[in-house]
Design a protein around this nucleic acid. Structure first.
Length: 929
RNA sequence: AGGCGCGUAGCUCAGUUGGUUAGAGCGCACGACUGAUAAUCGUGAGGUCGGCAGUUCAAAUCUGCCCGUGCCUACCA
């Protein structure tokens, strides 16, 4: 026994074991920054540009993230996916130039600055606009830098030294010029629209600046006398509405009914002493709500005269409740599909200036003019009869009483309900009709252009096309203006006399060129005469002080990035963002480009889902399930995060959590160890001669055929951005084909055959190709690890795998017959391993080399094994075949006969008479001395 | 509430035009090896394919309803 051990030890030095500097464990959190530093030193991005110069370009245009905070996991997903795509396109030989960008203007940054002011006790309105804008600019610049670092730490390769951003002077100039195009072609127009308005701050508010608190409103039941109706008997009866905002009555221009709602026509017979309802009058209200109305309006006795469905009122016209007091316009009735019978009367009064739905139904759908009734202080305007000077928040009871005096009501009440308030002052807000600038969807055919552009765009996944299309089909005109400070101004002058915007390309050009050198601050700091030039009198023109919707900024990136940079082109090959951007960037970019260039700025659109936690819940601070990418990078490394991206179905929502990340680390180790084994085996291969393909053993040819197929599949999948499939293929190849099969079988040959034996060299030749192929295939995904492995292989500090392309696999390696054959071989092999396991459980054998197998199998199965060395295939010491008539394969396992070779550990009869070593090993060892 | 999606083993995913006992990898359990060793190899156990109903000789796959969930709108007189 001790003899044997000593012998074994002696032979160990004669075995060619794998040897490599590439460690088993990645230590990614430490290693990755080192690799980044090398990329930096090599100037990898520039070097790659030089390397790919003149090649076909692939342009994935970066959707700009908003520069106001650290990255979250969604950013990481987005940028990693972009990087994987860019790197894979580069590996396929294209010049995939990636220019990252940032969105800098807009409300959230304004808020932050305002917040800082509040902390210092300063009033925003007293700060000069240029100072305020300067602080916004500094804020955005700060976060751009932070995010840039964080993105680069993810391994994202791009032009980080010269990115684009919307607040760059040149960008601002071109954004203004783009607005100028809409102005010149006539689709930019001034209209009006109800927006959230705070009478206290005298300013428009964004949706996010509004909070909902309880508020007690005076409610009224107002009556509208029918003067025209398809059911003639109803003329002279009263439609009753209920509202919580009596101040909107002067702005009433229509009524809405629900076409399927059941209404009743009721004669009022007796009422309470205090009731405002009049005995003998006939009202029309919802049948369902009538009881409630009686209670609130003091109706004691009544008679139902008739019943009808809402649609029977189609085409009716009523008088305003204050018709006799000067409100003598007619009030048409429309079908409002949003009318419900949850509360009120089943009729809704429509004031197009004071609610989005009202605006939509009356103005958009039915062309009713929107009246101006409320000024910026929340006071009803001078031109209004009776109500002029009353305040919309304070005087509602007074308004109700006046209406009651004019016999316009049947009841007054009170209601406490959730109501929007200003985030800043906590005062109630109202919807107020405000002048706004719009881009028309239809006057210049914008909708048509956009829709036909969409039809020609490739979507990944295809569902995105329908989603965007239906949005474009249904959307109203683009409201371009914001009553804000931090953004690109709408660079328009309005002629005071005519109220029309000034359309002069020379003025637009002047504005653009000033913005280009000074930024668009100039709009706010320079006298109008500078822009107007000599042909226009500044006193006759009003300068528009609104800024543009920031979606217009980012929607114009194709104009100031893709078209401007020599190293890019438009349209981009791909836009890639989260699925929320159907409403956002995909949408605004499409409209901007369709309006000015009559085509989409992209050939393809890829959307990914949102990142959820391990249970599929959305991440939120309150749930405490937010996972920060920085933390994952610290603990596991960016390559693990990158692996997570490609092992998920990113078209759908993705989940992340501890178990999921643990699985990624498992997958990572498997791929890393495969590379490590290849590197170890290839140690010293550069001193050996490689072997011609046709001289290789069949098993090596099979590996070659697998490489060929894999190469084809990976390129196909990469071209349709299906990296989940790429990853699966790669993992299965490393796992199933190499580690569990090919490597396992070839260990004996690699370790024990003569170092320069032809078969051994053939194996190494193919393993060399495996390594070079694999490392390139994984490079777009595991960008750090691939480069680390590449360095361990080349020992060249000046090189990077990211400068390479995918290995060219010789056409002659394709062999589908061989693939088919070896799939059969492997299923027979699996029968053997199962039988070996059974013998192991019975303690017949331990390692498979202790076994000798005899398999009986039908002739046609046996033919698959012809020419294959069976003990090698099964990793046993002996194996024989017996042809049987039974269609089932039978495997008999016995102990191999002979002694164990001290070097190769096979059990062979020859070892007994050969001094503890087999003949092959003896020859090899002898030759070594 | 509406529009667009999603729901297959503990986890990540395959499942072509409906067609045998629903697949893979990981994890897990058990075992082997100790010459890929904080590795490697083998074997095995895991699923009423979200639920219910229907169409059909046959449904994870088609239809309807419901439940859960995500994105985008709308949350109102």
């Amino acid at each position: 026994m001790s003899d044997n051990q000593q012998t074994t030890k002696n032979y160990k030095d004669t075995v060619f074991l794998p040897n490599t500097t590439f460690p088993m464990r990645g230590g990614l959190p430490q290693k990755e920054p080192e690799i980044m530093a090398r990329w930096e030193r090599l100037d990898l991005y520039k070097k790659l540009r030089k390397e790919r110069k003149g090649r076909e370009k692939f342009i994935l245009h970066d959707g700009p993230p908003y520069a106001n905070g650290h990255l979250h996991i969604g950013h990481a997903l987005n940028k990693i996916l972009k990087d994987v795509i860019n790197r894979s396109q580069s590996m396929m030989g294209k010049d995939a130039n990636y220019v990252p960008g940032w969105d800098c203007h807009g409300l959230p940054i304004e808020w932050k600055i305002e917040e800082e002011y509040r902390e210092k006790g300063r009033d925003k309105d007293e700060v000069p606009i240029e100072e305020f804008r300067r602080e916004c600019r500094n804020f955005a610049a700060h976060w751009m830098n932070v995010q840039s670092e964080e993105f680069q730490r993810l391994g994202v390769l791009g032009d980080w030294k010269d990115p684009y951003y919307t607040m760059k002077f040149e960008s601002e100039a071109i954004i203004a010029a783009e607005i100028g195009k809409f102005l010149m072609q006539g689709s930019l127009y001034r209209g009006s629209k109800p927006v959230m308005w705070s009478p206290v701050e005298k300013t428009a508010l964004a949706e996010a600046e509004v909070e909902y608190n309880d508020h007690t409103s005076t409610t009224i039941f107002a009556k509208f006398e029918l003067i025209e109706c398809p059911i003639e008997a109803l003329i002279g009866n009263f439609i009753v509405i209920w509202t919580t905002t009596p101040w909107t009555i002067p702005g009433n221009r229509a009524l809405a009914y629900g076409k399927n709602i059941d209404y009743i026509v009721v004669l009022i017979k007796r009422v309470t002493d205090t009731s405002l309802a009049l005995e003998g009058q006939t009202i029309i209200v919802s049948e369902l709500l009538f009881e409630n109305i009686c209670a609130q309006c003091g109706i004691l006795e009544y008679k139902v005269k008739n019943k009808l469905k809402g649609h029977e009122l189609k085409g009716s016209i009523a008088n305003h409740p204050m018709a006799k007091a000067g409100y003598d316009h007619t009030v048409p009735l429309f079908d409002g599909d949003y009318v419900t019978t949850e509360q009120g009367t089943g009729f809704v009064h429509i004031a197009p200036g004071h609610g989005p739905e009202d605006y939509d139904l009356a103005h958009i759908k039915n062309g009713i003019e929107v009246p101006d009734t409320v000024n910026e202080n929340g006071v009803l305007m001078e031109h209004l009869p009776v109500f002029s000077g009353l305040h919309v928040l304070r005087d509602n009871l007074k308004i109700a009483q006046i209406m009651a005096e004019h016999d316009g009501l049947i009841g007054i009440g009170k209601l406490t309900h959730s109501y929007p308030h200003s985030w800043r002052s906590h005062a109630p807000v109202i919807y107020r009709n405000t002048a706004q600038w719009f881009i028309s969807m239809d006057t210049d055919g914008l909708r048509e252009y956009a829709l036909s552009a969409l039809a020609q765009t490739l979507f990944y996944p295809v569902a995105g096309q329908r989603r965007l299309t239906s949005m474009i089909e249904n959307r109203p005109d683009w409201c371009l203006s914001r009553q804000r400070a931090w953004g690109v101004p709408i660079p328009v002058f309005v002629e005071k006399k005519s109220g029309k915007p000034l359309k002069d390309q020379k003025v637009v050009d002047r504005i653009t060129s000033i913005f280009r050198t000074e930024g668009c601050d100039a709009w706010f700091t320079s006298p109008p005469s500078r822009f107007l030039g000599e042909n226009y009198d500044p006193d006759s023109y009003e300068k528009v002080n609104d800024i543009a919707d920031v979606w217009f900024d980012s929607g114009s990136t194709h104009a100031f990035v893709l078209e401007q940079r020599e190293d890019l082109h438009s349209p981009a090959d791909l836009y890639l963002e989260g699925s929320d951007q159907h409403r956002g960037w995909f949408h605004s970019s499409l409209l901007e480009s369709s309006g000015t260039r009559f085509k989409a700025p992209y050939k393809g659109v890829l959307t990914h889902g949102f990142v959820l936690d391990e249970q599929g819940r959305k991440m939120s601070k309150s749930l405490g399930n937010v996972i920060q990418p920085q933390k994952i990078i610290q603990q596991s490394g960016a390559d693990i995060l990158r692996l997570w991206v490609v092992s998920s179905d990113y078209y759908d929502d993705l989940r992340i959590g501890t178990e999921i990340l643990k699985r990624q680390s498992d997958h990572y180790r498997r791929i890393r160890n495969t590379l490590r084994y290849l590197l170890g085996a290839l140690d010293g291969f550069d001193n050996l001669q490689s072997v011609q393909f046709d001289k290789m053993p069949e098993l090596e040819k099979w590996v070659a055929a697998r490489l060929f197929d894999l190469d084809k599949t990976i390129k196909e999948k990469a071209n349709i951005y299906d990296f989940h499939a790429v990853f699966t293929e790669l993992h299965d190849f490393c796992n199933g084909d190499l580690s569990a099969f090919y490597f396992d079988i070839r260990k004996d040959m690699l370790y024990c055959d003569a170092i320069d034996d032809e078969s051994r060299r053939a194996a190494l030749t193919i393993m060399d190709m495996c390594f070079k192929s694999l490392v390139a295939w994984i490079a777009p995904i595991l960008c750090f690890t691939a480069d680390e492995a590449w360095f361990a292989y080349t020992k060249n500090d000046e090189d990077s795998i990211h400068l390479c392309e995918y290995q060219k696999i010789p056409l002659g390696w394709e062999n589908s017959e061989l693939i088919k054959k070896w799939s059969k071989v492997r299923s027979i092999r699996s029968e053997v391993t199962t039988a070996l396991e059974k013998a192991r459980i019975e303690s017949k054998i331990g390692g498979s080399l202790q076994a000798s197998v005899k398999l009986s199998l039908p002739e046609e199965e046996a033919t698959h094994l012809s020419g294959i060395d069976l003990p090698t295939l099964f990793i046993t010491s002996d194996a024989q075949i017996v042809i049987s008539k039974n269609s089932k394969i039978k495997v008999e396992v016995n102990l191999a006969v002979g002694d164990k070779c001290g070097r190769c550990w096979k059990i062979l009869p020859e070892v007994i008479t050969n001094d503890g070593i087999c003949k092959r090993c003896e020859e090899v060892v002898t030759a070594m001395v």
